[in-house]
Design a protein around this nucleic acid. Structure first.
Lengths: 354, 354
DNA sequence: CGGTTCTTGATAGACGTATGTCAGGAATCG
DNA sequence: CGATTCCTGACATACGTCTATCAAGAACCG
């Protein structure tokens, strides 16, 4: 088993041309006759030549300057994602990838716009940002892309074709999956479901709910939707009231955040007869604990580890003006208490009650 | 934002020593005073120096020669895995990784031993192999590792500490997960479950079954276990007979392969009253079709894509005498009909009926 | 035919690291 | 004090690719 791979010099020798000519062919430079180009290409095939990217990057002093912009705040899911990005950043330096992770006040389009502008000024080779439909943001992103900076939508997609790639889950699929699991968990019986979302106008929550309804269709009754604004106190109060008022509820589907509040309600009701089937999103400290404690049944997780890995992969490819390979959406993972991964979260307290 | 990262020369300059001395420190060579070593290390910290692996590999003409040995035969899961390895091999060449994928007759320890020996002779930097407890195989693997060739267990673990790493799922966890989903799907009602395995003596099937029992515990009755030897005809005949003889069966858990036979039985029974809840393993062509057709409910998949990626990552690290980073087991994915990934299998016919 | 354009080869320096050799100086030992 | 060992610096070469420059020859045009 030979110890070395063919180099471009080998190719040139085999093609009967000089290194310079072979180089002109592989780097698509002008000034090569068809005949010469042809024989170089043939030699490449015959030898199975593959460019040594390490050498190429070395000679060009390539340094990938990437940035990820995440919404700041207490949301446990984004905190987790931030940690994952941070942990990646170190390891990436080995591969000449410098990743900056930046926080921007959530729901503040102007702050986000300013931050993106600053990144554009600073010189970056690619940006990942959580999608938002605000015109300020969309406009800035268009401008960045026009300047040649690739922009990737993360977790939540950007409207239209205003991004080079999207890394995240398909929220309609996620909602459908939740619906199927809810139907399965009712063992063929009719039930009454309480849906909980952040706001019905948020596109991701709306998609999840739509997918959910699609599947539970005629098989379930649906209680009035609770809008908890992703705030645990609000969720807690409203869910408690709803369960009080409507004892026929057999299932809860929470499509948004603020689930620490939901879990507190469930904690308070242990012993009060059979509890409803509960399905919610994102494996974070509090949802994990609730699953382990048997307070809830299923957590659908969008696998931020995989998302982070894909983001970096895609940004690097985009920075090289290549097209990202894997463009199909992330397949979310379904957790029950038995298949929880080993706990690596450390001391993340989750969404803390005030 | 500066365009370049500090080099070892920068470190040497800052530490007030020569490049040679700095090099002696980072490459742990002898002949450096503590004082000098200390100041180099400090300069490294201050500058945030990270060795340029591309340049290092280039200077050493590093070529990773890896091999994966898979059981040949008609098993759809391993066919899928083989394809995934093959597809990776091409892309890996770019990173100076040459991956050979080899088939060896399944259940033939001598053939496997010979193949492993040959690979050892041929000179490889790392081998991934599907674990087996046969003494011939275990002995050869010990010998390889003694020679300094890292060996990684794939899908099925190796006994004792006879491998450098294991990439695969925890089968007990998988069985427990199946149990939980079976209980959930019965909506709190008692049921009667038909378990199907290849053989009860295969460690992975035994683990799955044990985990399954652990969770369904007292909540379910259990029909006599069917041993289908992973052959679809055998499975088909026995499952058909069992369902005929025992109309009270409300769930089927198939822990092994040969599920094309199981699916054919279910196809034949459409319309014959409510069908049992069916949970089985590995998303391949036939299980996918059955899920889409509503013949089965849940497929638990061990994510061979992720396994392949992890194998390569781990082998590379082992070849560099580094310790693999992610050693926690693969988290299997749970599929229902609603969250199936886009079909990329091409024309794989699955386990074809004779 | 003279001039222009196109094609090709030769060559050299750079990227950052690994690895070697050699020589000079300091410290240590007998 | 002389001999030995230890530490250090100075160079040199190689890895494969990119990029640039220069010159020579071929092919073409008017």
């Amino acid at each position: 088993m030979d110890r070395r791979l063919p180099t471009l010099s080998d190719v040139a020798r085999r093609a009967g041309v000089s290194y310079a000519t072979a180089d002109r062919v592989v780097n698509a430079r002008t000034g090569v006759s068809d005949r010469a180009a042809q024989s170089v290409r043939q030699a490449i095939d015959e030898l199975g030549y593959v460019r040594n990217v390490a050498a190429a990057n070395l000679s060009q002093q390539r340094l990938y300057r990437l940035a990820a912009v995440l919404p700041a705040g207490s949301n446990a899911f984004f905190r987790r994602m931030r940690d994952l990005f941070g942990a990646s950043a170190e390891r990436l330096l080995v591969d000449r990838i410098r990743l900056r992770v930046e926080d921007v006040e959530a729901f503040d389009p102007c702050a986000l716009r300013d931050r993106l502008d600053a990144l554009g000024q600073d010189g970056v080779d690619g940006i990942a940002v959580v999608g938002s439909a605000d015109p300020e943001v969309v406009g800035t992103i268009s401008a960045l892309r026009a300047k040649g900076v690739p922009v990737l939508a993360l977790v939540s997609d950007l409207p239209g074709a205003e991004r080079d790639a999207y890394v995240g889950i398909d929220n309609t699929v996620v909602g459908r999956t939740a619906g199927r699991l809810m139907v399965l968990s009712h063992g063929g019986r009719r039930g009454r479901i309480l849906p909980v979302v952040g706001t019905r106008t948020a596109p991701d929550h709306a998609d999840r709910l739509a997918g959910f309804y699609e599947v539970i269709g005629g098989a379930m009754d649906i209680a009035p939707v609770i809008e908890g604004r992703d705030q645990h106190e609000l969720v807690e109060r409203q869910v408690a009231a709803a369960l009080e008022a409507d004892p026929a509820i057999t299932g809860i589907y929470s499509a948004g955040a603020g689930n620490a509040g939901l879990i507190r309600v469930l904690e308070g009701r242990t012993g009060a007869g059979p509890r409803p089937i509960v399905i919610l999103h994102e494996l974070v400290a509090h949802s994990r604990r609730a699953l382990e404690a048997g307070l809830i049944d299923i957590v659908i997780d969008q696998r931020p580890e995989e998302e982070v890995a894909r983001v970096i992969e895609a940004l690097r490819l985009l920075a090289d003006r290549r097209t990202p390979a894997a463009t199909d959406p992330i397949v979310p993972t379904i957790y029950v208490r038995e298949n929880l991964p080993p706990d690596t979260s450390g001391a993340d307290p989750g969404e803390v009650a005030p």
